[in-house]
């Protein structure tokens, strides 16, 4: 059981994720935008953050991820980023530090989400912590 923060502006997919995660007895809190997400991350100290990259404007999720990493307190909370990036932007981003396109996230999950995949990735990240 863990505290999970979902930062995503699509209330429908958030509800679906919440149901999936709660079925595994995780506690889920929700933020509808980047600012709220940063605030809640500070307050709730979640064990894991799920972040949508396409929130509000395209790529906004990137900035939020960088902010999250910069601020103290939840520097090491794993971030699972939801993307549809391959199809919608053609961006090919890498996860190694030092790369120009480096993004400080731990794992990616492509939309549409499969419940099993979500559970597996979440569990794997929580275990690594």
């Amino acid at each position: 059981m863990a505290n999970i923060l979902i930062i995503d502006d699509d209330p429908d997919i958030v509800e679906a994720m919440k149901i999936v995660l709660e079925s595994k007895d995780h506690r889920v809190s929700i933020a509808k935008n980047g600012e709220e997400g940063l605030k809640k991350a500070k307050l709730d100290k979640p064990d894991l953050i799920i972040l949508d990259v396409m929130m509000e404007t395209m790529g906004k999720g990137f900035e939020v991820a960088k902010e999250l990493r910069k601020s103290q307190g939840h520097k090491d909370s794993p971030i699972l980023m939801l993307t549809a990036i391959k199809e919608s932007t053609g961006l090919d981003f890498k996860t190694e530090a030092g790369d120009k396109d480096w993004l400080p996230v731990d794992e990616y999950l492509e939309k549409p989400l499969k419940p099993q995949e979500l559970i597996l990735k979440v569990e794997a990240l929580l275990e690594k912590r």
């Binding site: 699509d10 429908d12 997919i13 509800e15 679906a16 994720m17 149901i19 999936v20 079925s23 396409m54 549809a84 199809e87 919608s88 939309k111 549409p112 989400l113 499969k114 419940p115």
Partner: peptide, 23 residues
């Protein structure tokens, strides 16, 4: 098509948990 795809993936994301009887 980008708009359609976003809605579709949310629909799919909502249907899957139901089908897997998580609800």
């Amino acid at each position: 098509s980008h708009d359609i795809k976003e809605h579709l993936s949310t629909i799919q994301g909502c249907l899957d948990p139901v089908l897997q009887e998580l609800t």
